[in-house]
């Protein structure tokens, strides 16, 4: 009896997916769908939060008051985006505390790109231009992802992020049109961030275990390699416009496929960073753990006060 009910629920679910009807929090869903979503959404949220650190690193050193305000509002937006995403995951029954605990214990992953250091001001330009550019390619299709709360959070995220890439490009443009020392700074940052950015799209399709099911459930809309190709095709002309050299000797226009051929990503480096051996993995997590632990007494105090207050109000009403 139960298995028949289960089966018809699954059929209904599959029919919704096929008909592009969004799945909402209380709808029946396969356990694996729920798990995949919690994993992906929380990973996405963690990336926003950890992603605040490399850029936050330069807020206090931004070279003008205007840049300082822009950078602070951008990093603040990332906190907001992390929050929207944690909220979306919470509709699936995950608690934020648990998700954060998983991040801190290393059980949950976040985007490896944030395990690279920001060494000069040009890195802030490069992150906005390249990393946010890549993030947007990943994120725009997610506005149509099959799970309602996730899709709605992504609509908000994408709307707010539209200025992020532009401010990065503007920083790069200012540097590239500036003094030789600035141009050099820009090229060096470009060299450092190009390859890690290509890694952001994830492993090659034939080595990406989750892609197939996620595509079927319309959680994911394009494969890793498709997005990576699109990104390269979009960015190369922009780099040329800036007068920057793409650090890839194998980069070549391919008329037949109407796109660029490009060199092989260093997958050994990619897997190493994923495993925790990137230049900043330890620092990033330590920083997050420290903030969370040092904030514990604040969170407790606010709860304790709220309880005292509501008890007092209840006592007053009883009088």
């Amino acid at each position: 009896m139960e298995t028949i009910v289960e089966k018809s629920l699954e059929e209904q679910f599959e029919a919704k997916i096929a008909n592009e009807i969004r799945i909402e929090p209380k709808d029946w869903m396969p356990e694996q769908y729920r798990k995949t979503l919690i994993r992906q959404i929380s990973q996405h949220a963690h990336s926003e939060i950890v992603g605040m650190l490399p850029e936050g690193n330069w807020i206090t050193r931004a070279p003008s008051l205007k840049r300082k305000a822009i950078l602070l509002s951008k990093v603040q937006d990332e906190a907001g985006h992390g929050l929207y995403l944690y909220s979306a995951a919470e509709t699936l029954g995950a608690s934020r505390d648990q998700m954060i605990a998983d991040l801190h214990s290393g059980k949950a992953k976040y985007s490896s790109i944030f395990n690279y250091p920001t060494l000069s001001w040009a890195d802030i330009g490069a992150i906005g231009w390249l990393v946010d550019g890549a993030a947007i390619m990943n994120q725009v299709p997610l506005c149509r992802t099959s799970y309602g709360p996730y899709a709605r959070a992504m609509v908000r995220v994408c709307k707010e992020e539209s200025f992020h890439q532009r401010q990065g490009f503007e920083i790069m443009m200012t540097l590239c049109n500036g003094a030789p020392a600035q141009k050099k700074m820009a090229q060096e940052a470009f060299n450092r961030w190009w390859w890690p950015t290509l890694m952001m799209f994830g492993p090659k399709d034939d080595e990406s275990p989750n892609t197939e099911q996620s595509m079927r459930w319309k959680i994911k809309r394009f494969t890793n390699d498709e997005l990576r190709q699109r990104f390269v095709d979009m960015m190369v002309p922009q780099a040329e416009f800036l007068g920057l050299t793409v650090p890839d000797p194998d980069l070549k226009w391919n008329e037949a496929k109407n796109g660029y051929d490009f060199g092989e990503v260093n997958w050994e480096e990619f897997w190493n960073v994923v495993k925790g051996n990137g230049p900043c993995n330890k620092d990033r997590i330590q920083t997050r753990v420290k903030a969370h632990e040092e904030g514990a007494w604040v969170r407790e105090a606010a709860l304790a006060h709220a309880q005292k207050r509501s008890q007092r109000e209840a006592a007053n009403q009883a009088k």
Partner: peptide, 23 residues
């Protein structure tokens, strides 16, 4: 528009202002 965490109602309103009305 979404959700958030807060210790009490007053804080929830302020957090909502800071989180969801930045623009």
């Amino acid at each position: 528009v979404g959700s958030l965490h807060a210790a009490d109602a007053e804080m929830a309103i302020q957090n909502a202002r800071d989180v969801y009305t930045r623009r």
